[in-house]
Design a protein around this nucleic acid. Structure first.
Length: 426
RNA sequence: GUGAGCGUAGCUCAGCUGGUGGUAGCACCGGGUUGUGGCCUCGGAGGUCGUGGGUUCAAGUCCCAUCGCUCACCCCA
């Protein structure tokens, strides 16, 4: 049996890679416009980092992390998300000393040991953004606006849902009210909700069971229990989004799966990915930096799932972009091949995307290869040309051909041909 | 961790109630055009029918097991 990739680990093949480059390129461009700087952090961290940030009792930490002991017996974990590692680096290098408000983004693989399905892998990739050092509500809107703009520039259709989870002052009161509400309905809920009622009561609200949802119509809303500070904060976020003409829906049932979120949370939702609805999601995490041993600084961030973006892009445009090239050299026979070899390299050095057949196939076959490589021109060198010291330059678009003399001075010849081809192409 | 569906050529798939693996489409290689790509046409190569066992004169087809994939639950980007 051949060795295959691990379950939930995928190769990203050449015909898909164009989508990845498009997403990453667009993201970098937009993030830079908003003043974000890239940070690259390790994939492997001490297990403790994730336990402390994401929350000991969350599913991610409890049963989804790739955790193992290294050769010294230290417990390490492959990062299941990006925020914790970025914050660790932020604290470790005292980045707040350089600039009061830091805007950071990172791109890379994350790991969660889940059962794979559509839009969900064990190794998946996220674009992850964090702003540290400000608790201003307009910043929340700015961050949401950036995510929204990225989605829009990619041409993807999603809807935006926002909510406020309150703060350590008001959330516990709401939680009590909710627990009491659920207690009254004990026995009428699905098994999962019965379980969640005790472990993580807020999570019952986004249960998919229709019967449960019927019950929750009458459930207390977090938005009716916000303290005045949170109320005002959320008000400004909504007002700012409206100002930017970003359409949103308030979903008071939206709860995030990581413990560190407070106040503003948001999700970018699609119905085109089967069971997976969130393409991007994030929120405010004002206590997290301090919780990880750093200064008392507020923060907000979000992550977008790159595989999910790729799936959406693929659904929209059923085209794998074929990489084009500038020139293909069809050299017939050993003599011509020998002559063409340094020419090929010379053209590449001067900047052309050039290719050539090395199998010694027929001209017809080589023309076919040129066509397949999407070459703008083909340079044909055969026996006749060889003896006349010329080559035929064929424009693959309009099929026009011309004779050009073979190089005496290779470097100069290559430069001239390169110039000619690049100007002719556009 | 739970449940369902599916494994036949590089890819997408035919294969009826068991009776010699498909002229199938796309892709690939070659010829038609003794030196010119896309279109057309002719030909070629390519398979341990996921794996192992069982029933049978005979299994891609039926049964069991196993591995893999997919989708859904859970959870999440």
């Amino acid at each position: 049996m051949n060795i295959k990739a691990l379950k939930g680990f995928k190769d990203i093949l050449p015909d898909e890679v164009g989508f990845w480059q498009l997403i990453e390129g667009t993201a970098r461009d937009i993030f830079h416009r908003f003043g974000f700087a890239e940070i690259k952090v390790p994939i492997l961290e001490k297990t403790e980092l994730f336990a402390r940030s994401i929350g000991e009792a969350t599913d991610i930490v409890e049963k989804e992390m790739y955790t193992f002991a290294d050769r010294n017996g230290k417990s390490l974990t492959m990062r299941p998300e990006g925020t914790a590692a970025v914050l660790r680096a932020f604290i470790e290098h005292n980045l707040q000393a350089k600039q009061p408000v830091q805007k950071l983004y990172t791109v890379g693989p994350m790991f969660r040991h889940e059962r794979p399905q559509k839009g969900r892998l064990r190794q998946f990739h996220q674009l992850s953004c964090e702003v540290l050092g400000s608790d201003r509500p307009r910043l929340d809107a700015e961050v949401i606006a950036m995510a929204w703009l990225l989605i829009n520039e990619l041409g993807i259709k999603v809807s935006l849902e926002i909510n406020s989870l309150g703060c350590p002052d008001c959330r516990p009161l709401f939680k009590d009210t909710l627990v009491e509400f659920l207690h009254q309905r004990a026995g009428k809920l699905c098994d999962d909700c019965e379980r969640r009622r005790h472990t993580n009561p807020l999570r019952v609200l986004d249960c998919k069971n229709a019967h449960c949802q019927e019950q929750y119509v009458a459930a207390p809303s977090i938005l009716d229990h916000l303290c005045s500070g949170c109320e005002e904060h959320f008000g400004t976020v909504k007002e700012s989004l409206t100002q930017l003409e970003i359409p949103y829906q308030i979903n008071s049932f939206m709860v995030r799966g990581l413990d560190y979120y407070n106040r503003t949370t948001f999700e970018l939702i699609t119905d085109a990915l089967g069971a997976q609805s969130a393409v991007g999601a994030g929120g405010r995490y004002d206590g997290l930096v301090e919780q990880l041993g750093g200064p008392k600084l507020p923060g907000i961030g979000f992550a977008m799932g790159m595989e999910r973006l790729v799936l959406l892009l693929q659904q929209q445009e059923e085209q794998g972009n074929t990489p084009s090239s500038d020139l293909f050299i069809a050299a017939l026979g050993e003599e011509a091949q020998k002559l063409a070899f340094p020419i090929l390299h010379g053209l590449r050095k001067t900047g052309l995307r050039a290719g050539m057949d090395v199998e010694g196939r027929s001209l017809k076959s080589q023309m076919k290869q040129a066509g397949r490589a999407n070459a703008a021109f083909t340079l044909i060198i055969g026996e006749e040309e060889l003896s006349n010291k010329v080559a035929i330059l064929r424009n693959m678009g309009n099929r026009e051909q011309e004779e050009i003399s073979l190089p005496v001075d290779l470097l100069q010849w290559c430069t001239e041909l390169t110039a000619k081809i690049t100007t002719n192409q556009c």
